[in-house]
Design a protein around this nucleic acid. Structure first.
Length: 473
DNA sequence: TGAAATGTTGGGGCG
DNA sequence: ACGCCCCAACATTTC
């Protein structure tokens, strides 16, 4: 008996329910389809770079077993049909996805394949709990995180991950070469990524066990300091399913048996909870990929300011903590979460540029660019989403910098032209007096940009603009 | 998972 | 010893 296992965002062999169930039945055809015609919400440019290496690793792991990953390029439906014909497979397995276009495609395929008499089964490989398993007391979906979290952790979640199965793969199937997919960018933009990252499920497992064994205990204290390695950096692993959230949950609980009563572990698992919440929301409110969850924000007067958007993207706003974050993103494909909130607040509230513009840039440049988490994060920042930062919550980029990067290590790393500026004015160089900047080799407007606007004025402008949506739900 | 404005309190300098 | 002022430190409210 042969089962096609269609890999998507689950590029691992351990704790992979679709694969596990297939291997128990007999032969497995591990398939990855690269469909160039898919819409924009599947992979950003940075994510494609990651995908290349993650697929390479998955293939290598299968080869350790004498198997191989079958990669096919083409229209999803046609590829599936031809693989089914070639293999005479009667069974198709995959792990579910929850974004609107993924659901649409999978539902249509499932119907079509079942009509042909095939056995099509989908599994939960990407979430701790399915979005429809958690309901409010009135039976609806959650829109607030805390009660969602309470409900989630009221369930028994310590489930041992599924073992990696032995895969026996029928021979003679052709595979396209990974290089032919051209997943890596043509520009040299991504060349530096490999200095910071080792994609693939092997490195993912190592990163998780090292993190769960030590640093997670200090997550609560250190997660807000962008200069410190206080976060897990597991986000791309979860994005591509090199790890399942259940594996993460399990690993943390092994080292912290009462993880939810432990400051560090609880704060960390809560972030897994936010990921679950993001999937819950995108499943129940699919329109929020593009449209604000709170309808009154439809009439918000966003500005069209392409030059300012570009300065934000390039890390040239003149606000050091913002520029440091945007440059870290460009150079490493990742940004510290505290800084993500700061740069998002800056785009949306200081510049009054729509959260959709920010979401698009993040999705394309983040290695962990995930449509559910990205949408939640940006709607949160914009004040128009579930459990969002209220419209009047406007981050002050100077005081945020001074609070979370007090000795300026982070800013100096990513904005080297400010490296000699004394701490006192590092986060507000435009307020330096006399010769202070010249002595550090800085001339505003030449070696480092003048700030886009004045924070105080921007704040007042934002508060005024948000009057439009004030009061209404 | 804010920041700024406004209010309150209490210590210390000073006439 | 007293009233007055200043201002940090903290709390509350407002956006």
């Amino acid at each position: 008996m042969t089962t096609v296992v269609w890999f998507r965002n689950d590029l691992r062999l351990v704790d992979n329910p679709a694969l596990h169930a297939a291997a128990a039945k007999g032969d497995v055809v591990p398939l990855f389809i690269w469909d160039p015609g898919l819409g924009p919400h599947h992979y950003g440019a940075a994510a494609r770079w990651w995908l290349h290496y993650s697929l390479e690793t998955l293939d290598a792991r299968l080869r350790d077993q004498g198997a191989t990953l079958i990669i096919r390029q083409g229209e999803t439906r046609e590829v599936l049909q031809s693989v089914i014909q070639e293999t005479k497979a009667k069974h198709i397995h995959w792990n579910r996805r929850y974004d609107p276009s993924g659901i649409e495609l999978d539902t249509a395929l499932k119907t079509e394949l079942q009509k042909q008499g095939l056995d099509v089964q989908s599994f939960n490989g990407n979430l701790v709990m399915e979005p429809w398993e958690l309901k409010t007391k009135t039976g609806g979906p959650y829109k607030v995180f805390s009660p969602f979290w309470k409900n989630l952790i009221s369930h028994p979640l310590m489930v041992a991950p599924l073992e990696e199965p032995d895969c026996s793969v029928p021979s003679g199937l052709s595979s396209d070469r990974l290089e032919e997919l051209n997943l890596r960018p043509v520009l040299d933009w991504a060349d530096g990524f490999s200095e910071d990252w080792e994609p693939g499920c092997v490195a993912a497992a190592a990163t998780l066990s090292a993190y769960a064994a030590g640093p997670v205990a200090h997550y609560h204290d250190q997660r807000n300091l962008p200069a410190v390695e206080g976060t897990s950096r597991l986000s791309p692993r979860l994005r591509f399913g090199e790890l399942s959230p259940r594996q993460v949950w399990h690993a943390v609980n092994q080292h912290h048996p009462n993880a939810l009563d432990d400051e560090g572990a609880e704060a960390f698992l809560r972030e897994i909870g936010w990921r679950e919440f993001a999937y819950h929301l995108i499943y129940h409110f699919p329109a929020t990929v593009n449209a604000p969850l709170r309808p009154n924000f439809e009439r918000f007067p966003w500005r069209d300011a392409p030059d300012e958007l570009k300065r934000w993207q390039q890390g040239m706003t003149g606000f050091p903590i913002v520029d440091a974050g945007m440059r870290q993103l460009w150079h490493t494909g990742w940004m510290h979460n505290r800084v993500r909130m700061i740069v998002a607040s800056f785009l949306v509230k200081n510049l009054l540029i729509s959260w959709q513009e920010g979401a698009e840039w993040f999705f394309d440049t983040l290695l962990d660019g995930d449509i559910a988490s990205n949408t939640l994060g940006w709607q949160w920042a914009g004040g128009c989403g579930a459990d969002a930062a209220p419209y009047f919550r406007i981050f002050n980029p100077m005081s945020q910098g001074e609070k979370f990067d007090p000795d300026g290590t982070y800013v100096r790393r990513w904005v080297p032209e400010l490296s000699s500026v004394p701490n006192k004015v590092l986060h507000r160089p435009f307020e330096a007096k006399g010769m202070e900047l010249q002595l550090s080799g800085v001339t505003l407007g030449q070696t480092y940009p003048q700030p886009i606007g004045e924070h105080k004025k921007a704040r007042e402008r934002a508060l005024k603009a948000f009057d439009v949506v004030k009061g209404a739900a």
